[in-house]
Design a protein around this nucleic acid. Structure first.
Length: 629
DNA sequence: ACCGGTGCGT
């Protein structure tokens, strides 16, 4: 990508130089172009047409900031050249800056390279210009020239270079720049250190980002935001939320962007009471939501388990873009409310919002979660026919999942054969799921092996393959997979279940006895199992495909983390309270049945979030996701 | 100079 951009640049650079040489002008056109830009004067109309008002550098600067296109900038540039004003450092810098603002980097650099004299502003403007349009190689090369020029590097250019390191994920280069920062004694500069934090965090080194962050004597909003964003992005949303609280504790008032970031973190965490807290905070402002913040809140509520709260935000928004609509569609989709998701589509069109690739991923995934086969097929065709959006792997993945779950394995396989795109992890995952539902061990084995090749470090796929062999009674193969896994020092990801009670999160593992109220939990569970068994519950070990050995043993089946969490929730909360449960892996089929029955027998609403979606159970025992187990 | 922010599959 960088190489492409670099070579593209050398081509346009030539063009720019051509245009620079060809731009000729006369004194007459000079005032004609500049006049509209000159501030209105109170002086009388010109008395002597032969002595035009003297041109001041400021006239060019104010003309430049009003330019609407590179072509206009070139005109002013030509005039400045004629008026010999381009040799004025301030005027030249402003030209370079304005060219860069319009993305005309070739023009900017052509001028920059011809400047007789350059100061820090010149360098900062050109280096920043390159970053802005993504010409990272040029940015870094120019920065090297800057360092060699002997001028003192300053706090204006460094953030741009650090941004180039961030965008290209070049940690080593970033560390080099960090050394330069120390050499220049700029480690306490607000913008430079904020850029350093951002660079480290986005290069995957949050610990060093945090070190820089902690050493800062003062921080501004951007610093807090990049640090929170770094934690959210690298899979530590808890710390992101903790920083948000700390920031508020220190009397810093988070702005919209900081709030968007923390909403994003909360969506990743999926903890409802935190979502409510963030929403309460937003409600305490008296200004309306902007598109980005509103959309972030929609997604946050959806991923914390409430499509209805997401809808409330959606309805209150004045402006909605394609991301807003897609998020709302997706919100219904992950909650198994496919019909409502699809109903949004015509409304979206009425609002003159054009669906894009991702909108259709959300639509198809909603169809799949709700079992809407015909609708899914229709949308799959319509997206290309009516919107010229060619289905990509993700769309095919949704379709394979949809058809597989709906019992149409052969159609799913047909589609898979027809697809010429390279099959990725997600696609094989969906195909595997479809094969497993239908007991097609041969194809399941193929899919699982592809997954092992694509993700040799993901222990989950070894477990799956091992289970496929076990189901087919191929015990030597089971042993082989286990050995392979052990030889790569991989272990099964432990299954955990979390439950939120009174704004507190409790975690359970299989057979967990570490909870302080363990005794009560096991007593409640025992009574519950008896109640459910008399209501027809039969423990089912056949579907426990994604959990393994220990958990499969009969004794453990009764103490699956989900069941412990449910038992705890039942005795720790009043009768009408909704139980919100999160599991890091998929909820197994037995637990699904168990929870469904439990919600019916105990007249409780239970919302389970697993690694992929939500399962809504209510007192009536129905699950709005449908049953595909 | 004006940084930091929103949606997608198993």
């Amino acid at each position: 990508m960088l190489v492409g951009k670099r070579s593209a640049f050398s081509i346009i650079s030539l063009e720019a130089q051509k245009s620079l040489f060809s731009s000729s002008s006369s004194a007459a056109s000079l005032s004609a172009v500049l006049d509209p830009f000159l501030p209105a004067t109170e002086s009388a109309p010109q008395e002597t047409p032969f002595s035009p008002a003297p041109l001041h550098p400021r006239s060019f600067v104010s003309a430049l900031v009003r330019c609407r296109s590179p072509a206009e900038v070139r005109k002013v540039h030509a005039l400045a050249t004629t008026a010999a004003m381009i040799d004025n450092l301030g005027v030249a810098n402003k030209h370079v800056y304005i060219y860069a603002q319009h993305g005309a980097l070739a023009d900017a650099y052509a001028l920059f390279s011809r400047m007789k004299e350059r100061d820090n502003v010149s360098w900062s403007v050109i280096v920043g210009g390159f970053v802005k349009v993504g010409y990272y190689a040029n940015c870094l090369q120019t920065f090297r020239d800057f360092v060699r020029s002997g001028l003192r590097i300053d706090n204006f250019t460094l953030p741009f270079v650090l941004r180039a390191c961030r965008d290209t994920v070049s940690l080593r280069l970033g560390v080099e720049i960090h050394h330069l920062v120390f050499k220049a004694g700029l480690q306490s500069d607000l913008s430079v250190s904020a850029a350093l934090v951002d660079m480290y965090a986005r290069c995957g080194d949050v610990d060093d980002a945090r070190k820089v962050f902690d050493r800062m004597p003062k921080r501004h909003m951007v610093t807090w935001t990049v640090m929170m964003s770094g934690y959210a992005e690298c899979g530590n949303p808890e710390e992101s939320l903790a920083l948000f609280d700390r920031m508020r504790g220190e009397g810093v008032v988070p702005d919209k962007i900081a709030t968007v970031t923390v909403a994003f973190a909360c969506a990743k965490l999926g903890v409802m009471h935190k979502a409510k807290m963030i929403h309460d905070y937003v409600s305490s402002w008296n200004f309306s939501l902007n598109v980005i913040l509103g959309t972030a809140l929609i997604d946050m509520y959806a991923k914390c388990g409430s499509a209805d709260d997401a809808r409330v935000i959606f309805d209150r928004m004045k402006d909605r873009n394609v991301i807003t609509w897609s998020s709302m569609i997706s919100a219904y989709g992950i909650h198994g409310r496919g019909r409502e998701a699809l109903d949004l589509f015509p409304l979206m069109l009425q609002s003159s919002i054009r669906p894009n690739r991702i909108t259709f991923v959300s639509i198809l995934s909603a169809c799949s979660h709700a079992g809407l086969v015909d609708e899914g097929r229709q949308f799959f065709h319509l997206m290309e026919r009516d919107y010229s959006i060619k289905p990509d792997v993700k769309h095919y993945t949704c379709m394979v999942d949809l058809l597989g779950r709906a019992g149409k394995l052969s159609e799913a396989l047909e589609l898979s054969e027809k697809m010429t795109l390279e099959k990725d992890e997600g696609f094989w995952g969906a195909l595997l799921g479809a094969c497993r539902i239908h007991g097609n061990a041969v194809l399941a084995e193929k899919a699982a092996k592809s997954l092992l090749e694509l993700r040799p470090r993901n222990s989950g796929y070894y477990v799956l393959l091992s289970n496929i062999y076990a189901n087919a009674g191929r015990w030597e193969d089971v042993a082989e997979v286990r050995d392979l896994m052990a030889s790569r020092s991989l272990r099964k990801t432990p299954g955990w279940t979390w439950i939120e009670i009174n704004n507190e999160t409790h975690r359970f593992g299989v057979g967990d006895k570490s909870h302080p109220q363990s005794k009560e939990i096991y007593e409640t569970l025992k009574v519950l199992i008896e109640k459910l068994e008399s209501a027809g519950y039969v423990p089912d070990t056949n579907f426990v495909l994604h959990d393994i050995d220990e958990e499969l043993k009969a004794g453990f089946l009764y103490t699956h983390s989900e069941k412990l969490a449910i038992a705890f929730g039942l005795f720790a909360t009043p009768e009408s309270t909704t139980l919100r449960i999160t599991k890091n892996l998929r909820v197994c089929g037995d637990c699904h049945t168990f929870i469904k029955l439990a919600s019916s027998v105990m007249h409780r609403e239970i919302i389970v979030r697993d690694a992929h979606r939500f399962h809504h159970f209510n007192g009536g025992g129905s699950c709005s996701c449908g049953d595909y187990w």
